[in-house]
Design a protein around this nucleic acid. Structure first.
Lengths: 340, 340
DNA sequence: TATCAACACGAAACCGTTTTCGTAAATTTT
DNA sequence: AAAATTTACGAAAACGGTTTCGTGTTGATA
């Protein structure tokens, strides 16, 4: 076992001072070529690398980004994370991940933990509970301490910081328009009450599309499901009770569950019922028929969030730039569940 | 903006020494109750929290774990990561993630980066390229420096460290046995050449099961596919060329692609052909019929890896414990793709 | 009353860097 | 030859903590 070598070790070994070693390795012209060569050779031989922790303490920056997401076993968050990691890595940053597990407390505790020097800034998506409580004091305090935050997807207007969101309402409207174009009038929305603002924005888009096309809004055509469970029974009842020609689901799991139920009932997709989901994950790509879905471009979103954060962290401007909210344009991918 | 407060700030303000403040906050009995109360009140009021970086430098431990995985947009790795994060968090550790993207260079660079003080230990799964090159000097060097490593799933015998693996061969054998029990003899294996040792172990199990049941091994019944692409054409050809009664796929994507092709051809699952996949992800749970699959218990694996790592990191034994290789028992989940 | 322990605190070292400043010695300028 | 400048390096402070080791002041003991 050969433990890491420090400047002090080199200094002692070569009988020079620590400062000389430090300067020599940084190629300072204060040091003679001779000495520099000796020191560099020695350092190289023993594979010297400066200690990140010491550097962090000295420089008051860690080159670490804290990422707090509600869940990692979830295609959308996974892709966003990938985007963050790739951009951050490229810029020489490391990423510390905490999973809030949709819990307010975990979100708060994790962020406070990391905020005490471990990271230079945060990227996060609010937990369900945080949205429900509408309590953002933890974020505000961090911002107050001068720690930059970028919020993505599940954001809150109450928090003054940079944000990256999806044009949820727009794309939901566009999706419903697509269904209407295919001749459907009785269009259902299957949604969740978990992700307040995102779901809300999608619902608004759904309603807007109906309005624009003079289709009366029927609240019975909206089904609100608990998240991620097996909702087969509820969905079956829903389809038996209502004559439905098309469905917009706020995620791909609901969508494939719908498809299953519909096919079970003996109806054909897309001939009898068309379906559109959200999240272009593997479920959408490998279902049969393939699911028309809203691609949320998670990687792009993550990349942009990281870019905004790093830009702010590295900014030397005395007067700070105003906060921006960037909108990622979602794409409706038309596949077999809406077209033949 | 109120910047973080330090011991020095408190000391100056209350006109005591830094050491007194430090001791008071740690409830040292060296300090009088009076002074302690004053200091604690002040610290509480200004929300004092010790700086993690300073602590790390002093204690020579960061309470950070480095996790290096080939890919995050992948159900299995995601669940393992979740297991790691949960256990680590509970034990007061944070997790720094790097994605090697199946690249040897990224794996090496990321690990060297983190090894210079940022983390106390690693949990990793080898990148495809690393396995191909069979070069583990980067791991050996880190171990040599006294940095503990736990390898999971994609491991290498050449590296002397703790490991957590799946009983791949056993469960593959068991899966094929299940297919044989259902009356199948012409059993195909659809595999990938990417993950050398894991795939190899599964293949061994497949062959073993055939041998145990006196079924001749036919190399034409093994289809090797490139990873994660749309292999519909290759699969279709494969099924047209060979009379197949059952299939074992080394992941769930191949399995649902198979199911698609088979249903397209007009055959019934499981009546005409049975299918078993690996990875109990959403694809398996939401396909129709539901896919029989090998649950790899990723969370458990991650939790165990984290437990082994933390145990070793926190061990104060002078003479180190011998390295262990723990085996996670996979479970074959029987669903509609093999039974009615 | 001299001795001694207990008490309550401060000084300083240390973790591993960077960086400012000071200063002998060598070299150049006048 | 004296003065000024350059060269090449070291001492020390700083980042924010912890911890060891004094030390002056009490109060108790002999």
């Amino acid at each position: 076992m050969k433990p890491k070598i420090t400047l002090k070790d080199i200094a002692k070994e070569l009988d020079v001072s620590i400062s000389t070693v430090s300067k020599a390795l940084k190629n300072s012209k204060e040091i003679s070529k001779d000495t520099k060569d000796r020191i560099k050779a020695f350092a190289k031989f023993y594979n010297y690398r400066p200690n990140n922790i010491a550097l962090s303490l000295k420089n008051k920056r860690t080159k670490n980004i804290g990422v707090v997401i509600p869940d990692i076993v979830h295609h959308f968050f996974t892709t966003v994370f990938r985007g963050i990691e790739m951009y951050a890595n490229q810029m020489g940053y490391n990423v510390i991940v905490c999973i809030s597990d949709e819990s307010y407390d975990k979100e708060v505790i994790n962020m406070e933990m990391l905020a005490n020097g471990s990271i230079d800034g945060f990227i996060l998506s609010l937990s369900a509970e945080t949205q429900r409580k509408n309590d953002f004091t933890h974020l505000k305090e961090l911002l107050d301490q001068g720690i930059p935050i970028v919020l993505f997807d599940r954001v809150a207007p109450e928090v003054a910081c940079d944000k990256v969101i999806l044009n949820d309402m727009e794309i939901a409207r566009e999706s419903v328009e697509h269904l209407i174009e295919k001749g459907s009038k009785k269009i259902a929305l299957i949604t969740t009450d978990n992700y307040f603002n995102v779901s809300e924005r999608r619902k608004d888009g759904y309603i807007q599309a109906l309005k624009d096309n003079d289709i009366p809004f029927d609240k019975n055509l909206i089904l609100t499901l608990p998240h991620d469970l097996d909702n087969t029974k509820l969905i079956t009842e829903f389809f038996q009770k209502n004559e439905i020609e098309a469905v917009l689901c706020v995620n791909e799991i609901f969508a494939v569950q719908c498809m299953s139920v519909i096919q079970q009932i003996g109806l054909k997709i897309p001939e009898d019922i068309s379906i559109i989901g959200f999240t272009d994950g593997i479920l959408s790509r490998f279902s049969s028929p393939k699911l028309s879905t809203v691609a949320q471009h998670g990687e792009k979103m993550g990349g942009l969030a990281a870019e905004m954060l790093i830009k702010r962290m590295e900014s030397t401007e005395v007067v700070e730039e105003p906060f921006r909210t960037e909108v990622i344009e979602a794409t409706l991918i038309k596949r077999g569940s809406t077209i033949n």
